[in-house]
Design a protein around this nucleic acid. Structure first.
Lengths: 208, 208
DNA sequence: CAGATACGCTACGACTCGTAGCGAAAGAGC
DNA sequence: GCTCTTTCGCTACGAGTCGTAGCGTATCTG
């Protein structure tokens, strides 16, 4: 995403330092992981980033925007994969999610952002557009690949398939989030394998 | 849980007002939903609860403890059900989760608590014991009921079954949390039905 | 070189924090 | 009913942070 901070930027005088941007966003994530949302002070972030406090205020009007950008810049790494089978692709997506959520700074920043989103409809909308939707695209692409490979029934209602994808995405993202962010337990390859099995197959031992 | 605030309480002088406790916890949840974790000030909570600021400081040493109790007192309502079929039981559990997470005050308080948990190992442990484990028991009981009704294969490895339950719980809780708390989308009976279908059956159109 | 913008620094009023001290209120125990 | 003990509400306090303004310097454009 690399949202450049809101700036008029008429490209006339001295341009804004891109290095400062990176330093600030890094410092924001670190500070958030250490002192939490409540303890996050602009002054401390500026000190840690090695910039003046006023520089920070000039670029980001509120904590929300700052943390939003700090998180978004860390979320560009998810990639669509085609490993040859639906199962392998799903496991890969889950592993990518897990890797993303494994960094303590990302954990704190994401959850703090989600918490703020419950109070700020506009922020929640930005979260959806910036974080959720791109991830959802990943799952959609994975399904399309599987269909192209002939792993899925071709005669399947298109409309309901779209809804299924939403549910599947919520399931994948939510399950990993819950395990790592709430319970704080690790997501191992073994766990990923079992989870994928549960997703693809009927409940073990269950006769429908 | 109804954790009484830490108090020596030698039962000699004037006892602590239980009404004040309730007022404080209610005010905490409301304030959290309005101003968020960062904006949550003890002074404001006291004002809203109609008690003196000093009274609050006497009972709860930190914001973490206060919010923890504020959330815990709202989470006692989940109940084990036996509606006669595994599918119905699962749908009921999902519906209970959804009802719990539908209140804006609970949403904000829970996510704020989770966010703090990423920085505070002790708090995370309390979250597990107070919130996660009781909910997990629900799923375990549901599975036991299904097994008693003969809905599950009797000859199923016990050890791996326990691990399956953990995964299933993470899946149920995480999916609902993600949809309601992150995306902010509603959990309707129709959605619950589709989600349960996905959980119990193989991926639609997928040939394993 | 002149113009324009960003940067770092300092100082400022306004606000909130958590604590201490006090008299009054409210039960417990005899 | 009387006394003792603890809590309660109130006020005042120093400490600290907030976000902003002003100014001189640094850095890039044309």
């Amino acid at each position: 995403m690399a949202t450049p901070p809101p700036a008029p930027h008429r490209a006339k005088g001295r341009p804004r330092s891109a290095a400062a941007d990176r330093a600030i966003l890094d410092a924001t994530r670190e500070a958030l992981a250490e002192v939490g949302w409540g303890g996050l002070s602009i002054g401390q972030v500026a000190l840690r980033a090695g910039v003046a406090k006023t520089t920070l205020y000039r670029r980001w009007p509120s904590k929300n925007e700052l943390v939003m950008d700090a998180v978004a810049t860390q979320l560009e790494e998810l990639e669509v994969t085609d490993l040859g089978s639906l199962r392998a692709d799903i496991e890969d997506v889950v592993a990518q999610f897990a890797a993303l959520l494994s960094r303590p700074e990302t954990q704190a920043a994401l959850l703090a952002l989600f918490a703020e989103g419950t109070r700020d409809a506009q922020l929640r909308k930005r979260i959806r557009q910036t974080i959720v939707d791109p991830q959802k695209r990943l799952v959609r692409q994975g399904r399309a690949n599987a269909q192209a490979r002939g792993e899925l029934d071709p005669d399947c209602d298109e409309a309901s398939a779209a809804e299924e994808i939403d549910i599947i995405f919520d399931t994948i993202a939510g399950t990993v989030e819950h395990r790592m962010l709430v319970s704080g337990e690790p997501v191992t390859p073994d766990w990923i394998s079992r989870f994928t099995t549960l997703l693809l197959n009927p409940l073990p031992g269950f006769r429908a």
